Computed example of a mutant assay.
Amino acid sequence: MAHKVILDTDPGTDDVIALLLLLASPEVQLEAITVTFGMCRNTDVDHAYNNVLKTYEVVRQHCDAHPEDAHRFDHLNARPQTILSKGAAGPIAGEQALAEYFHGKDGLSNIMETHPEFSFPQPFEHPWLKETDVAAHDVILDVLRREPAKSVTLLAVGPLTNVAKVYAKDPETLARVRRIVIMGGTFDAPGNTTAVAEFNIYADPFAAHQLFSGSSTLPLLVVPLDITSQHTVSFSALILDDPKTLLQTFVSAILARPRRVLAALGYSGDVFEMHDPLAAYMVTMHAAQESDVLLPGFRTTWRDFVIERAGEHTRGMFVVDKRASIEDAGVSRARDGIVAERPTGDVNPGILRVEVLDQSSGVKKFEQHLLRRIVWWSPSL
């Protein structure tokens, strides 16, 4: 039986690659997709929402035009419709931050301008989706209430605003989740939005702090830039110069802008860092597991830190104490004086502690799995 998953997402390019991986994975059943702000300048998240619809429609039309590929998505016809819901249009607090600079004003490399054939008429009904006006955080709660405890994984690959709203409204129901896999943050690696911050945390550090404060009762697993930035795939394996099908054209088109931006920023190697797809890979690989024990090759560690929520240059930073003392990241000697011992337990109150993925089954295995599932036409295969 397929493992049930809720995907909370702000669909830009790497989110869509992660979604395509989930759609091509018979091990999982997408119960719901809840959309949040993040990728583009549209306060009611319409672009992000439409990017989910667009992705589903591309897959459907590809299968209709190429029945020889339909078996890759056949399981979707036997599954209940996935609920699709809009969520937060902005952060819990603070200024709204967007990643339009990277993904384009529509979140998909301005695909509707460069490839008008992807401007599908709206609205339309999709056989694999069930749209709803119920708010995203309530959709998440509805799924968790109706399903057996520990039977649903929540995969969060956008700003954590929707999930924080779930926690604020009904933490007991959220605790019924099997695992909350979060792509976000960075502990020791450079940031991808500022020098020290990853975008999903930067976009709503207040939501991240609120959610991570519940880590003692919630099964959180963070997948940070420290590991995702190691999992790259060559753009030449993803982008075709002469695509032959709608899906090939779609994948090639949505990755065009990130390729140009990364080159302009001076990154070498012509590779795409698979941040959200690695988190989706983690979920699909463990979908058949009856326990929370990780598969061989995967490894986690526990990290202590605080989240900077309002710093001029450090908003969204995971502040890790690297001093050779017993002090924690929240301690300022100028304010607190000499802290000779921790007041309670092993970690000071206010210090966040979460489980963090720090090793996968291998970069090559991940790359092969991703390419075989969603870009099987690649010349490199």
Rank of each mutant, 00 (worst) to 15 (best):
L98Y: 06
A70C: 10
T55K: 06
S234D: 07
D133G: 08
L294W: 00
A334D: 03
S332A: 07
S215E: 02
D64P: 02
G87S: 03
A287Y: 05
S119Q: 13
A65L: 12
L225F: 00
E100W: 01
D15G: 00
N192A: 07
L160P: 05
D241C: 02
K169C: 13
T301S: 14
K365N: 11
S216W: 10
P80M: 04
K86W: 01
D242M: 12
V59F: 06
H47T: 11
N348Y: 10
T284D: 02
R299M: 10
L370Y: 05
D328P: 01
S216A: 14
D138E: 12
L357W: 01
G12T: 10
K105R: 15
V223Y: 09
R259D: 06
H313M: 10
D336Y: 09
D64Q: 14
M39C: 14
I83V: 11
V152P: 01
A256T: 15
V35I: 15
S119D: 13
G269W: 01
L174E: 09
H126F: 02
P123S: 07
S85G: 09
A32G: 05
H103C: 08
G266E: 04
D226C: 05
A203G: 05
D14S: 05
L160G: 08
T186V: 09
R179S: 13
L129W: 07
A70D: 10
S360T: 13
L246V: 10
G191T: 10
S151P: 06
D8F: 05
L211C: 01
T249P: 08
E312I: 12
A189P: 11
L160T: 09
E312F: 10
L144V: 10
E117C: 05
V293T: 10
H369M: 13
E31S: 15
A334M: 09
A197M: 12
A253T: 10
H71M: 15
D106I: 07
A93H: 14
L144K: 05
P171Q: 06
R353F: 03
A203P: 07
G269C: 02
A279T: 09
A70W: 05
Y267R: 14
Q230W: 06
H275I: 14
V283G: 01
